[in-house]
Amino acid sequence: MVSDATAHHADYVGQDRWVVDYLPGRQLTREQARAAMRIAVAPDRFEVDAWAATLGMTAAEVARCEQSVLPVNGSAVAR
């Protein structure tokens, strides 16, 4: 999954599992990957709390993860 609005991305890894570049080490369902991408695209929307809950996280936890990874040329690089 990609978006023109963010450099973050989600990659399908098989067996209905996805990985999102700013959530390393986590394998997500498609629904969770979409929620993570929605947060990356629109972090100021009121729905962020609900999207984060889909990931089993708070909005603040997701924001910390997203800010700790800097996308460079489609790859995540830890800050």
Rank of each mutant, 00 (worst) to 15 (best):
M57V: 06
P71Q: 04
V48M: 06
V41K: 10
A10H: 04
V77W: 03
S68A: 15
Q32F: 04
L55F: 03
D11A: 15
R64C: 06
A42P: 11
A76E: 03
Y12V: 00
T6D: 00
A7K: 14
A52G: 05
A33P: 03
E66Y: 14
A10Q: 02
R17S: 08
A78L: 14
V20Q: 00
Q67F: 09
V2A: 10
A35I: 02
I39M: 08
A40R: 03
Y22K: 02
E66G: 14
T6P: 04
G14Q: 08
V13T: 09
R17D: 03
I39N: 02
V41W: 06
R64Y: 05
R79D: 03
T58C: 01
E66S: 14
C65I: 01
A10C: 08
G25M: 02
M1K: 07
N73R: 14
D16G: 07
S3A: 08
D16F: 05
A78I: 11
R45K: 15
W18V: 01
D16L: 06
G56F: 04
D49Q: 09
A36L: 00
V2H: 12
V72M: 07
Y12T: 05
G74A: 04
R45Y: 12
R79A: 11
A53W: 06
G56D: 06
A7W: 02
A78N: 12
A33F: 00
R45P: 01
W51I: 01
Q67Y: 10
A52D: 05
D21C: 09
S3R: 05
C65Y: 09
Q15I: 12
A10L: 02
A7Q: 14
A63C: 07
S75Y: 11
Y22I: 00
C65L: 09
A59K: 08
A63E: 13
M37T: 12
D49C: 09
V20K: 00
G14H: 08
A50Y: 07
A33I: 00
E31G: 10
A35D: 07
A63N: 12
L23M: 01
Q27D: 09
E31W: 05
R34K: 15
H8L: 03
D16K: 07
W18Y: 11
P24V: 03
A5S: 13
A63K: 12
R79P: 00
A60G: 12
Q27A: 13
F46T: 15
S68Q: 09
G56V: 08
A7H: 11
R64P: 05
D11M: 14
W18M: 02
S3Y: 08
A7M: 13
F46V: 15
V77S: 09
R34T: 13
L28R: 04
S3P: 07
Q32R: 02
A60E: 15
T54Q: 13
V69E: 02
D44P: 05
T6I: 01
Q67L: 13
A42Q: 15
A40M: 04
P71C: 05
D11E: 15
P71H: 03
E47T: 09
R17W: 03
A76L: 10
D11Y: 11
M37S: 09
S3Q: 05
V77F: 06
H8M: 10
A36W: 04
